[in-house]
Amino acid sequence: MLAGANDIAIQPLGAIRPELLARIQASLQNIYGSTAAILPPLKIPREAWIAARQQYDSTKIIRFMTRSAPAAPERILGVCDVDLCTPILTFVFGAAEVGGRFAVISLQRLRPEAYGLPADRLLFMQRCAKAAVHELGHTFGLRHCYRYDCIMFSCCSVEGTDLKQERFCPRCAEKLRDARKC
């Protein structure tokens, strides 16, 4: 557990199963050494819907969170179960403000069933936890890491997510410590 606890809040966007939120909460508390409260759920904003693509715009969701978030938590991670994209990218697993306060992850593409594979609850929850730790890492100013086993490694496929560990490499851990000192 890293020293220097700062408050983190998990913001469910739409209906998210409690056991999944608990798994994400446990990971964030374990990795960041912070209290990670689970906020009451909010509806996904209609403004983020892109009808032509049948997806939600992650940038607009983060903007919505900025407007509707409670003041207290230092960082807020949105969790939604819809497919996210940006106007320019076909999809994103998540998005974050680098060095900012807000991040969001999507569960849609983390399920093995999304790739025609049998359901695997544990694997799915592990992927969700990894995505949460990764996106929240960006809010601490961390950039993508070149080490494939570091949680900050950037991957455009779930296979890459499965390869990385649910922890920071020594270099990123040091950067995180430095960021939290500031």
Binding site: T86, L89, A96, E97, S154
Partner: peptide, 17 residues
């Protein structure tokens, strides 16, 4: 010219360092 494009792509590239 679209602000949302600039911001979203900019954030995505910043994540990559």
């Amino acid at each position: 010219d679209e602000e949302i494009v600039r911001v979203s792509l900019g954030n995505w590239l910043k994540e990559d360092g």
